[in-house]
Write a protein that binds this DNA or RNA. Structure first.
Lengths: 188, 188
DNA sequence: GTCGACATGTAACCAGTTACATGATTAA
DNA sequence: TTAATCATGTAACTGGTTACATGTCGAC
């Protein structure tokens, strides 16, 4: 008898399994965690979706749910990976299929249609982008330092790699904005 | 009497209006065009969505539809911007609201969960990414040259800006992959 | 005679969002 | 007393995808 048919899960499920591999968490915790980590290079699901996803994972036997009563706070449900959940996670990370990243820039789209734009507001838009990205960069660099300063109890290797990825991309965006502003300003 | 309530359109509508601002096109043409242009920094809609979107735009009075009979080919419907469509497009490009780009990397997500991975396959994944991005870079650089070589009948400014954006981001991805591979290989 | 380009569309589906709903505790 | 944090969920909606459906022409 073959094992129950393993419906293949959407990426989001794996993102959640992955986060739970660090430590058991509630839906609420997962949302906080996602906002601070994977949102920087992936995306952060709406909380309603997290709860939905957790029910699905539980039903599929990939996580367990533990009801925890608290008195100073609302009760919570803490989810943890099952051995099968752990296996599925590794399998996914290890899998050979490669998926291209997706990059969707509203700013670039508007620049592409720059012919239909007022040049001044287009430059404004790019300046805005530049400011934003510089803040982003500062944030990421702070995260990097924090990561480097972390104790010996946890291995920062992978977190560091993703932070550095974020830094590279943010710098690229900064360079692009600067160049584009220059280019548009020098136009007649 | 106020003008008809202007339901605010999704981004995709503006992408289509923008493409039509270059020249009137059919749904089929739009798909080809999107694949070659905005897919590089935004995304390319499924054809079924383009046809749906065109109906919406027509209903909203932002494009006109012209039925063209062909004998060697199936008939087609060619869409063109109305003055109102053109106005809405400019308004959107010029608008002051800034939207952050979205970057969603499956590779980075998997690297982030690298603890759960076989180190070898993780490195494989990064190598794969590297190869892919190098091809991407070559393609973009070819596009850049082509753009620079274009005749005086059309202004390549904005297209060039987006291509150069693509080049910056792709280079960032290449640097990141190289660094990450090195970093993982040098681990014990 | 088969494949790819041309050309448009429908149907079924699902991923994901926002808004709504509830309610306790604690700090300003 | 007002707002933020903790905590979980439902309902309504839409954006977008894949698969299916149809049919001609020209090139190999």
């Amino acid at each position: 008898m073959p094992p129950a048919p393993l419906a293949d899960l959407p990426q989001t499920s794996f993102a959640i399994l992955g986060m739970l591999s660090f430590e058991p968490m509630s839906g609420y915790d997962l949302k906080q965690f996602a906002d601070k980590s994977i949102s920087h290079f992936y995306w952060s699901p709406a909380k309603s979706q997290i709860y939905t996803e957790l029910r699905r994972l539980k039903k599929a036997g990939l996580v367990t749910e533990e009801h925890i009563e608290q008195d100073a706070r609302p009760d919570k449900r803490v989810y943890a990976l099952t051995p099968e959940g752990n296996r599925r996670l590794s399998e996914w990370v290890d899998s050979a299929d490669f998926e291209q990243h997706m990059f969707k820039s509203n700013v670039m789209l508007r620049v592409f249609f720059g012919k239909s734009a007022n040049q001044k507001s287009l430059i404004e838009l790019l300046r805005h982008n530049l400011t934003f990205e510089r803040e982003q960069l500062a944030e990421l660099e702070a995260m990097e330092q924090q990561c480097l300063a972390s104790g010996p109890n946890y291995d920062p290797t992978f977190t560091l790699l993703t932070i550095r990825g974020g830094i590279e991309f943010t710098k690229a965006s900064i360079r692009w904005s600067e160049e584009s502003i220059k280019s548009l300003e020098s136009r007649v």
